[in-house]
């Protein structure tokens, strides 16, 4: 039963990015929405990596290096997303650039310089998710402090950031387990369960994000002009 569940979850997780990809391509295609494009490209890369890994695994070819490469791309794309997300806050933009450089250095140092690309890169993933947390919290903090006339959940950015936060939160804790325990089959399965479910959930939220189109903020009271007032006064 457990094996069947895991297999089912694995396939569902591999197919789940197709949902937001199809939604974006057929329903909500928009050249101008750069943030959606970043996530879209990341999803496409994710599907390619997942399917390739599955094929390579069937042929007993090692796939860890491929997953580690995806970790690098995922980190850089999500940090690019945050870089574009913070339109006004210059400090956060600089922080996104800084984090990207740190992450890149860390990944290159561990996987290329130390030559550990064929071992699963928990360190880079852990650091990557800490960065995600930081920027998600920064986004929410910004939204909580800046007064806005638009509901937060009516913007697609909110759904994407929520997806990233929940995905990171769901999978993050597994990085705290000593690396040795991942060698046992049970914990490896548990780890996969968590990341697969997290991935599916993330893709559902991204699908919602792709369905949402930001509207220009409207404020009924502010937009009232004097003619309306004059009409009101006649009542």
């Amino acid at each position: 039963m457990g094996k069947f569940n895991l297999l089912f979850l694995r396939n569902l997780s591999i197919l789940s990015p197709l949902l937001p990809i199809l939604v974006f391509c057929f329903f909500r295609f928009n050249w101008k929405q750069k943030l959606k494009w970043v996530i879209f490209v990341l999803l496409v890369i994710g599907v390619i990596v997942d399917t390739t890994c599955e094929n390579l695994a069937h042929k007993s070819i090692p796939t860890i290096w491929f997953i580690n490469l995806y970790t690098l791309l995922e980190g850089l794309f999500v940090l690019l997303f945050f870089f574009l997300l913070f339109k006004i806050k210059r400090n956060l933009k600089l922080a996104a650039i800084g984090c990207s450089l740190i992450f890149l250095t860390l990944w290159l140092g561990r996987n290329i310089l130390l030559g550990k690309i064929h071992n699963y890169d928990y360190l880079s993933q852990g650091v990557e998710f800490i960065f995600f947390f930081f920027f998600c919290l920064a986004y929410f903090f910004q939204k909580a402090t800046v007064s806005n006339t638009e509901f937060i959940y009516s913007t697609y950015e909110f759904w994407i950031v929520s997806a990233l936060l929940i995905y990171s939160a769901g999978t993050f804790f597994s990085f705290f387990i000593p690396i040795d325990t991942h060698e046992t089959k049970i914990d490896t399965d548990a780890f996969e369960y968590i990341s697969r479910i997290g991935n599916i959930f993330k893709n559902i939220l991204i699908t919602i994000a792709f369905f949402v189109n930001n509207k220009p903020s409207s404020n009924n009271i502010k937009n009232r002009n004097s003619i309306y007032y004059m009409n009101d006064l006649k009542d």
Partner: peptide
Amino acid sequence: KISPVLFFGTLGMIMLALSLILFII
């Protein structure tokens, strides 16, 4: 055999993330 740290840690993190999102909303 599954680590309770992993189970409760993950659960806790998800609850925290959801609480944060709901709080902001």
